[in-house]
């Protein structure tokens, strides 16, 4: 094994570790819904290569409005799925799409893009 091979091997191994850390240990961006008039909880979520915030906390039993603003035209994020609430929506690019729901059971409910690549979760407590 010559020098360049040793360098590539070391760099590669380091890079693999970095990729794992970069994607799997990414911190969540958490937001807690603010209740307005009549207990309506609203959160605006930016959709651009991911959801930010990607963890949304809401209170049980109160109506929730999630405003998804899709700030890109890339195909991956065009569909939004909230399977536990039977919601499948198309998010038009550069527009806000509002999803309304009323959580009546505490728990963590995932929301994802149409293919499950981008993900976030709705925490009801």
């Amino acid at each position: 094994m010559d020098t360049s091979q040793i360098i590539v091997t070391l760099l590669g191994t380091g890079l693999i570790g970095f990729v794992g850390w970069f994607f799997f240990a990414a911190p969540h961006r958490v937001a807690t819904a603010v209740a307005g008039n009549g207990g309506l909880q609203q959160v605006t979520i930016q959709v651009k290569g991911g959801y930010s915030p990607d963890v949304v906390e809401v209170a049980l039993g109160q109506p929730v409005q999630l405003h998804f603003y899709r700030d890109e035209a890339a195909g991956c994020s065009e569909e939004l799925l909230l399977p536990d609430f039977g919601i499948r929506r198309e998010l038009p690019a550069f527009q806000t799409t509002t999803v309304e729901l009323r959580p009546d059971k505490a728990g963590t409910y995932p929301f994802t893009c149409g293919m499950g690549m981008l993900r976030g979760s709705l925490i009801v407590r």
Partner: peptide, 19 residues
């Protein structure tokens, strides 16, 4: 172009997709 823009947006969120 779409692939690179989308990949870049994803990286900023530390997410990865098909793109």
């Amino acid at each position: 172009r779409e692939f690179y823009v989308s990949a870049w947006n994803g990286l900023r969120h530390r997410t990865a997709s098909m793109d």
